[in-house]
Simulated scan of single mutants.
Amino acid sequence: MRPVAPYLRGSTRRLAEEYDVALLDLDGVVYVGPDAVPGAPEALAAARAAGMRLAFVTNNAARPPHVVADHLTELGIAATASEVITSAQAAARYLGERLPGGARVLVVGTSGLEQALRERGLVPVSDATGQVDAVVQGYSPDLNWQMLAEGAVALNRGVLWVATNVDPTVPSPRGPLPGNGSLVAALRMATGREPVVTGKPDPTMHRESLLRSEANDPIVVGDRLDTDIEGANAVGCASLLVLSGVTSVRAAIEAPPKLRPSYLGSDVSALLVAHPEPRVVDGGAVCGAWQAGCTDVEGDAALILKQAAGAAASAGSDEAGAGDLDAWRALCAAAWAAFPDRGADGIRVHPDTDPGREAAGEVLGRLGLA
């Protein structure tokens, strides 16, 4: 894989032609709850037609790969079980490399973990009354007090504890709901123990994805900065942040270096376009028809957006409407250049006072920054 720096990159070719495999997060990227993200089935089919292979990578350990593949197919996204990579598989590989064959692993989760453990020659168990060699915990909508109690009993004996992820929330049509991290917190409080985390952003998950997808030059596509993007940066993999899940435009602008993506897009259709690289100039950055700069407003750092003189919208910049993505790219590039070693927490964003102020204000409004 090529080196990846924590600033926006450009690609004159469509990303589906630039990279061989898209490592796609599921929740918030491909679907939200039971429904596909609008346009995702068509965009992913077009990416395949362009020669890109797809791997569906999820921190959710609740369902076995074949169940996930069947769900994707029902949503109009052709998928096979071999293309689905779960945090349960990464956790099971981690345990399989450290425990003898036939070791008994207490499952605080559901069937996805049980199947993954059996594939590694381990024995899943559901209670702590007998021998338990390790505890593995993954997201399950059916997890209850009894499961947590059995986990606490085993953990108090000092056995290895592996969590498939510590995502605090999962997206849903009703908004964020408690994720595995919220459930892990219950056992952390009850036992004073800390788990080994093998899901994103830990490199264990990325290694599992590469082994199973056989990717040479992949790109991670995700909606979370602290799992998808941080995990990609940790292993030097290119990444595409999309807005179809939990992350906002502002969160990307304020991101510290380890959470900064390589590319920005509204959704997975961003795989089907070229991406302009913002030009970093003194005091700011230019992308397409927009220029952003970091300045001082009433004693505080602020980002100013204005129309770039003589510039035109970039090709493929209309995913989010009329060059809005170019404005977002310019704002991110300017903020990251002004704060190279830390995040731009709480930075204010304003339209410039020049004649283009109204247009800049409208763009900021659409981006949720006004």
Rank of each mutant, 00 (worst) to 15 (best):
P6L: 04
L8S: 01
L8Y: 00
R13L: 15
E17L: 15
D20K: 03
L26V: 10
L26M: 11
V29H: 04
V29F: 12
V30G: 08
G39Q: 04
G39I: 07
P41K: 02
G51I: 05
T58N: 11
N60E: 04
A61G: 08
R63D: 07
V67A: 15
E74L: 13
A78N: 00
A81V: 05
T86E: 12
Y94D: 10
G96W: 10
P100C: 11
G102Q: 01
A103R: 05
G109A: 05
R120W: 09
G121N: 04
D127F: 10
G130A: 12
D133V: 09
A134L: 09
D142E: 13
W145F: 15
Q146Y: 12
L148C: 13
E150I: 02
A152H: 02
V166F: 08
D167K: 01
D167Q: 02
T169M: 02
L177Q: 06
P178N: 01
A190L: 13
A190R: 03
T191D: 02
K200C: 12
S209F: 08
S213C: 12
E214A: 15
D217V: 11
G222D: 06
G222A: 05
R224I: 10
D226F: 14
E230I: 09
G231V: 01
V235H: 07
G236V: 04
V246Q: 01
T247V: 14
R260W: 10
V268L: 09
S269T: 09
A270L: 06
E277K: 10
R279E: 15
V286M: 04
D296M: 14
A302Q: 00
K306C: 14
A311L: 11
D318V: 03
D318L: 08
G321Y: 01
L325D: 05
A327G: 05
C332M: 10
A344P: 13
I347Y: 05
R348K: 12
R366T: 05
L367T: 00
L369Y: 02
